[in-house]
Amino acid sequence: MRQYLLLIILFFISIVFLTDCKNSFSDGKYLYETHCQSCHMPDGIGLRGLIPPLAGSDYLKNNYEKLPCIILLGVEGEMIVNGKTYNQPMAGIPELGTMDVALLINYINHQWGNDGKYTDFREVEANLQKCE
């Protein structure tokens, strides 16, 4: 009897973990669809020479620490992504909280074949101290 109880408890714990994993991406997906998708496109390809891609982007990897500042405050001026120069200002999303920013970065870093780092709100907070 005891063994069964243990098994059942284990089962529920694993369900909680699994749904939690799923949720962290679905929240990020929701944030992406709300704030980013209309310019960076559903599949992250961007818009020709105007809006840089997020899918397979070297900029995401090389500027990992800048991402929270860019998302919250926006960015202006020339930017080189995968060897191509872009120059269209991006508006920031100042209403996002640090947790939202972390969810968004984790989503973008693990979509469309991207294999970037995981971040959390503490790291986002630390990186926000370095905004220019």
Binding site: S38, M41, L47, I51, A91
Partner: peptide, 10 residues
């Protein structure tokens, strides 16, 4: 335009 234009332009 922050909403539909980039998709339409694509």
């Amino acid at each position: 335009c922050p909403s539909i234009c980039p998709t339409t332009s694509l």
